[in-house]
Simulated scan of single mutants.
Amino acid sequence: MLATVLTETVLKSDETLQEAADLICAHPQVLAELRQLLDVLADRIEHLQQALSTHPDVPLRVHARYTRREVLAAFANGIELKVPEWREGVRWLPEAQVDLLAFTLDKTSGRFSPTTRYRDYAISPSRIHWESQSRTREGSETGRRYQTHESSGSWVLPFARLTPDDRAFWLLGPATYVSHEGERPMGITWRLAHALPGDLFASFGAAVS
């Protein structure tokens, strides 16, 4: 994850993770600054973070924050450096059998069109309301996967940020399907395996009030 972020504008798209690591290690001043930065960031951890039980080999932790690029790098094969583009709010990773849902709570800015101003909010510390993409029908392949993910063996990981200016998203998952209303978009209620910390629940509520 670190190598992908640090070298995304330096190395070619076909470079390997090892080549990226070698490049970083070749610059002692960068390594020294990273050590200092990690010490500072360690003192700024605000929440008790949980390991991702659904994917033990993926280095993500519940209630930590990640960019889209970091999330895709975490699910990568550990050899290739390049990760695909992720610009929409959803991403299905068939190899990992996981739906990634990235959404913004405060949509009052002009960056959202009427068709992308989805109603996403926290119902309670353990439940969230989320709307699918506007073209998703309940009987479509994607719609059925959302509804039957438990029985079919796939997972759902929601990621939330407060505003479009926030680069990183809080990992809220894993989440389990509870119910839905309508289609195009589907309004889905998800149950979180780990309840939101009090301050996150309060800030999420303020963002959509």
Rank of each mutant, 00 (worst) to 15 (best):
I79E: 09
L100P: 05
K107I: 03
A64W: 01
N77W: 02
L60K: 09
A64M: 12
S109G: 08
Y118P: 01
T104N: 05
P125M: 10
S132P: 01
A76M: 01
W92D: 06
S113R: 14
G89V: 06
W92A: 12
L52M: 08
G89H: 02
W92N: 10
L52Q: 03
H129Q: 15
I128E: 05
D120A: 02
P114Y: 10
G110W: 07
I79G: 00
R65Q: 15
L52A: 01
G78A: 06
I79D: 06
I123M: 06
A96Q: 10
Y118F: 14
A122L: 02
H63T: 14
S124F: 09
P59G: 03
N77D: 14
S53W: 07
A51M: 09
R69K: 14
R119Q: 13
R117T: 13
A64S: 12
V62C: 10
K82N: 08
G89A: 07
F103M: 13
R119I: 00
Q49P: 08
T54K: 11
T67E: 04
A76E: 09
R91T: 11
P125S: 02
L60S: 12
Q50D: 05
Y118H: 03
S109M: 01
L52F: 08
T54R: 12
D120F: 02
T54Y: 14
A102T: 05
I128W: 08
P125K: 11
P114G: 04
V58Y: 07
P59F: 03
A96D: 09
V83Q: 13
L72E: 12
K82D: 12
T54W: 12
A51Q: 13
S132L: 09
R68W: 13
R117G: 08
E88Q: 12
I123G: 00
Y121G: 00
L72F: 11
I79P: 00
P84C: 07
V58E: 02
A76V: 02
R65T: 15
F75K: 06
A102Q: 06
T104L: 09
G78F: 04
P94Q: 14
W130T: 04
Q97W: 07
D106A: 08
E88V: 15
V62E: 06
H63K: 13
L72M: 10
A122P: 09
G110D: 11
K82E: 04
D120L: 03
V62W: 05
A76F: 01
P56T: 11
L48S: 13
S124G: 00
Q49M: 10
